[in-house]
Amino acid sequence: MLLSSDDLGFMIEGVFSFNLGGHTLWITTSHICLLIVFLTLIVFSFFAKGAMLKAAEVPRGFQNVLELIVEFLDGIVDSTMGKHAKNFRNYIGTIFIFILVSNLSGLLGLRPPTADYGVTFPLGVLTFTIVTIQKFRYQKVSGVIKGLCDPWPFWLPINLIGDFAVPISLSLRLFANVLSGTVMMALVYGLLKVIAYAWPAVLHVYFDMFSGAIQTYVFCMLTMTYISGAMDTE
């Protein structure tokens, strides 16, 4: 069969398996790529710390790049969340850098970890958890119940579904975008092997860099919007 997924390298492959309490658990390519992304970020953070320990008044070179990154991340959080920004700069900055590096890792021949629903769904659940906690903190229990029964009490199930759809739609959006890019590149390399010289670079720029950066921005933007909405006490 032409499209048997064996010769197209976009599926998640198991690397090795082990037994834990009677269950067979697989270490897959997603875990490996995730580990590589984490290690890259950890090494980068050590270099960054080293550079900032001997920081100069007038930044040069690497320090300049670091300040640019931090200022950009703080800028988007400040402009979206206003007075609540200072509590969320760290979280938003972290997930921004993590998702961006994950999406860009497709350029290096890795399978982007964000093209695995097991990676993006926890990110969506994290957003949902933060939103729910902030809702209970700022609107109190009475406010949350009032918000759920918004126009009339029998609206409750629809409002509940709307709340629980947030993490699912957030994570599916990121997952499907990155997966579609991965599949498209795998199709180009797998089926057009003979003529796939140089020009797939253009597709890489679109699918990996442009789409990856936009989806990172959208994920963080929507997370911030949902959290701001939860803290809106009126």
Partner: peptide, 24 residues
């Protein structure tokens, strides 16, 4: 515009996801 377009893209991606599940 890019933010709005990326959000509007979601419904299309759901269709793509269903297609990929069916195919692969």
């Amino acid at each position: 515009m890019l933010l709005g377009q990326a959000v509007a893209e979601t419904t299309g991606l759901y269709g793509l996801l269903v297609a990929m599940l069916l195919m692969f």
